[in-house]
């Protein structure tokens, strides 16, 4: 089990009524899927806001960042670096495109 830091965009912080960063406990292996599964279980109001309810595909205007790298197009069942598992780096969900 790992305590993983997750950073959420402003509007999702408001929906979940949390600050910019939450800490959740995730079973191994720690992947984008397992992190987001746990986020949605703990904060069900975020279901459907990051990933599609049914397909679990990332919403198009959001991005996942891991250790300063864009992991948005990486397989979501890929095990994430140790820095995420150790809590040294956050898993970042980012609203990537500006709307003018």
């Amino acid at each position: 089990m790992s305590d993983v830091r997750v950073q959420l965009p402003f509007h999702l912080q408001n929906l979940a009524r949390v600050g910019s960063e939450i800490v959740i406990t995730v079973s191994d292996p720690v992947t984008a899927d397992s992190i987001l599964d746990e986020v949605e279980r703990r904060y069900p109001m975020l279901c459907g806001t990051i990933r599609d309810h049914v397909t679990k595909k990332r919403r198009p205007f959001l991005r996942y960042f891991v250790c300063q790298k864009d992991f948005s197009h990486r397989p979501t069942d890929e095990e994430l670096p140790d820095a995420i598992k150790a809590g040294n780096e956050p898993f970042i969900v980012w609203g990537s495109l500006s709307g003018g």
């Binding site: 703990r42 069900p44 459907g48």
Partner: peptide
């Protein structure tokens, strides 16, 4: 959000279905 309250335990209503 109806049905979207923060879960202390993970039983009961389906999570976050109000926007499904």
């Amino acid at each position: 959000q109806p049905g979207g309250e923060v879960k202390i335990d993970f039983t009961g209503q389906p999570a976050g279905a109000s926007n499904k």
